[in-house]
Amino acid sequence: MNNKISIHNLCLSIDRQPILKNVSLNIPTNKITVILGPSGCGKTTLLKSLNRLTDLIPGVQQSGEIMLDGVNILNGNQDLVDIRQKMGLLAQRPYPLPMNIYKNITYGLRISGRRNRQFLDKRVEHYLKMVNLWDEVKDRLKDPASALSIGQQQRLCLARGLAVDPEIILADEPTSSLDPISSKLIEEKFLELKSQYTIVLVTHILRQARRMADYVVFMYLGEVIEQGTPDELFNNPQHPVTKSYLSGQFY
C-alpha cells in the first residue's frame, strides 16, 4: 500500500499538557482513512497537526515526524503555504469567509495570484457542481455566503477547499452539524472523491465509519490504540478499549 502521509512518534503538548502521545500511523493514498475515538481524545488536534494549524495554538510543543510524500513537514524550513494548499480542511462546523459565495470559492485561488475572470468563473462552476451546490446557488453567487443554510455552507466549504486543488482532504466530523440528507450527500461525495484524493475523515459515528473506511485508526486519550483495515478493526478488535468502544460502552 502506498502511503501519502506517514507519522512517526508525533507528540504534541499544550502548556506542557500532553495531548498527542507518540502517535505513529500511515495514511494510504487515494483511500479514506477514518479516525475514530471518544470525545477529547485528540482527533481534531491530530488532523490539524497535518496541515500545521496546530502551530497557532498558544503554548504548543510538537515533536516527531510527519512525512508528506516523503518529506518531513514538521521541521521548520517548510513553506506552510505549500503544505496547506496540498490539503483541504473541512471543519466540524462550516465557517464561510465573510464575503460572497463566488469569492469564498475563489479565495484560495485569488490569494495565490490567479485573477483571470474566466478561469475563476469556470472553477466556481466546476467545484460547485462537484458538491451539488451549483443549481441551488447559481443565481445568487454574489450573495453573502452566510445567507446559505448550514448544509449548503458545509458543501460550500468543501468546494472552497477543493478549489485550491489539494491532494488531501482533511475532514473533521464533516456531517456532525448536518441533517441526514445533507450528510448523505457529503458521504457520497467523499466515496466519489477518493479516486482523486487522499481523504482523512474524523468521525464519531460508527456506522458512518463502517460505510466509508478503507483504513481505520482508533484513538484513546491521545494515543493510537489500534489501526487496521475495517475488517480487522471492526470484526476482530484486539485491544480491550477498542472492543468496549465498538460495543457502545462509551462514546
Binding site: 506552510l80 494548499q85 483541504g88 480542511l89 471543519a91 465557517y95 495565490s112
Partner: peptide
C-alpha cells in the same frame, strides 16, 4: 472573530497577513 475562520483562511493557503487583512479585519 472565531479562530476557525482564521484556520479556514490559512488552510486555503493564505499567509497570516492575508488572513488578517481579508478575513479578520473584514469580519
Amino acid at each position: 472573530v472565531p479562530n476557525e475562520l482564521q484556520e479556514a483562511s490559512l488552510s486555503l493557503g493564505a499567509s497570516k497577513w492575508q488572513t488578517i487583512k481579508f478575513v479578520v479585519v473584514r469580519k
